[in-house]
Computed example of a mutant assay.
Amino acid sequence: MDPLRPDELQVWQACKTLGHHVTRRVGAELTAVTGLSGSEYGLLSRLEELGEGRLGQQALADALGWAKSRMSHQLTRMAARGIVHREKGPTGVVVVLTPDGRDLLARARPVHAAAVREYLIDRLGEPERAMLVRIADRLTDAGGEGEPGG
């Protein structure tokens, strides 16, 4: 197969830059205000949304699109900070959001929302936002490998 043409390369670079730029800025805001990284916020918010603060470790890893080792290392660091803990469940390890983790998540949600609005939503008009959603839907449906984000 031939290498990407300049116009194809431009589309590829735009896609990579958009995702990296927005998530980096949102993550930086979260870290500056709450001390949470973007990955930590994503994990806590998924844990709350999908399991009401209690979810199997493998289900959480699957929801985030993370490898088992990445999930394990991340949870070890977060457990040391007292924002989650792990316990043995009937079918494996269960991740539990602690009261401190719930408080931190509650403080982080408005920071996350404000940053997403500042660095993405407010910079696009309604037609552009709708188009971006349609493009993302088409690409994730076609590839079947869309990774959920925070």
Results as ranks from 00 to 15, higher is better:
Glu49Ser: 12
Gly92Arg: 09
Gly27Val: 00
Asp141Trp: 10
Gly143Ala: 09
Gly125Trp: 04
Ala80Gln: 13
Asp2Asn: 10
Gly125Ile: 04
Leu139Ala: 13
His21Phe: 11
Thr17Ala: 13
Ala142Thr: 12
Leu97Val: 09
Glu87Ser: 14
Asp141Leu: 11
Leu104Ala: 05
Tyr119Lys: 04
Leu9Lys: 08
Leu18Lys: 09
Asp137Asn: 11
Arg134His: 10
His20Met: 11
Val11Thr: 08
Pro148Ile: 07
Leu139Thr: 12
Gly42Tyr: 08
Pro127Cys: 00
Ala113Phe: 03
Asp122Trp: 07
Arg107Met: 05
Val95Trp: 01
Ala59Glu: 12
Gly150Gln: 02
Val26Lys: 06
Tyr41Phe: 15
Ala142Trp: 09
Ser72Asp: 14
Pro6Tyr: 07
Leu124Phe: 05
Gly82Glu: 04
Gly149Ile: 14
Asp141Phe: 08
Val33Gln: 15
Gly144His: 08
Arg123Ser: 01
Ala67Tyr: 12
Thr31Cys: 12
Cys15Glu: 14
Arg102Tyr: 01
Ala59Thr: 06
Glu128Cys: 03
Ile121Arg: 10
Leu18Met: 09
Leu43Phe: 04
Val116Gly: 01
Gly150Asp: 02
Gly149Tyr: 09
Gln13Ala: 14
Val116Ser: 00
Asp100Ser: 13
Gly19Cys: 02
Glu49Phe: 08
Asp2Glu: 06
Glu87Thr: 13
Thr91Asp: 13
Pro127Val: 04
Gly143Lys: 01
Leu132Trp: 04
Gly53Tyr: 02
Arg54Pro: 00
Gly35Arg: 02
Asp141Gly: 11
Gly149Leu: 13
Arg129Phe: 05
Ala59Ser: 09
Val94Gln: 10
Pro110Arg: 02
Gly53Cys: 07
Ile121Pro: 02
Arg129Ser: 05
Glu8Ala: 05
Glu118Met: 06
Ala32Gln: 14
Leu60Ser: 10
Gly38Trp: 03
Val116Ile: 04
Arg81Glu: 04
Arg24Gly: 07
Val33Glu: 15
Ile83Trp: 01
Arg86Phe: 00
Gly149Met: 09
Gly89Leu: 01
Ser37His: 08
Leu139Glu: 06
Leu36Asn: 03
Glu48Gly: 02
Gly35Val: 04
Ala79His: 08
Ala61Cys: 11
Thr17Asn: 08
Thr98Asn: 06
Ser72Met: 06
Arg25Glu: 14
Met71Phe: 08
Leu18Trp: 07
Leu55Asn: 05
Glu126His: 12
Trp66Ser: 03
Asp7Cys: 03
Val96Trp: 05
Ser72Pro: 02
Glu147Tyr: 13
Gly92Cys: 07
Gln74Cys: 10
Pro3Trp: 14
Lys68Ile: 13
Thr34Asp: 02
Asp100Val: 05
Ala115Leu: 00
Trp66Phe: 05
Arg86Tyr: 00
Tyr41Asn: 05
Lys16Ile: 13
Arg109His: 06
Thr76Ser: 15
Ser45Arg: 14
Glu126Met: 04
Arg77Asp: 08
Thr98Met: 03
Gly89Ile: 04
Gly146Ala: 03
Thr98Leu: 02
Val95Asp: 03
Ala80Glu: 15
Val116Pro: 00
Arg46Trp: 10
Leu43Trp: 01
Ala106Asp: 04
Met78Ala: 13
Leu104His: 03
Cys15Lys: 11
Pro148Lys: 12
Thr98His: 01
Thr140Glu: 03
Met1Phe: 11
Thr76Gly: 13
Gly92Gln: 08
Asp2Trp: 11
Glu8Trp: 01
Met1Asn: 09
Gly38Met: 02
Gln13Thr: 09
Glu126Gln: 12
Arg77Gln: 13
Asp100Lys: 14
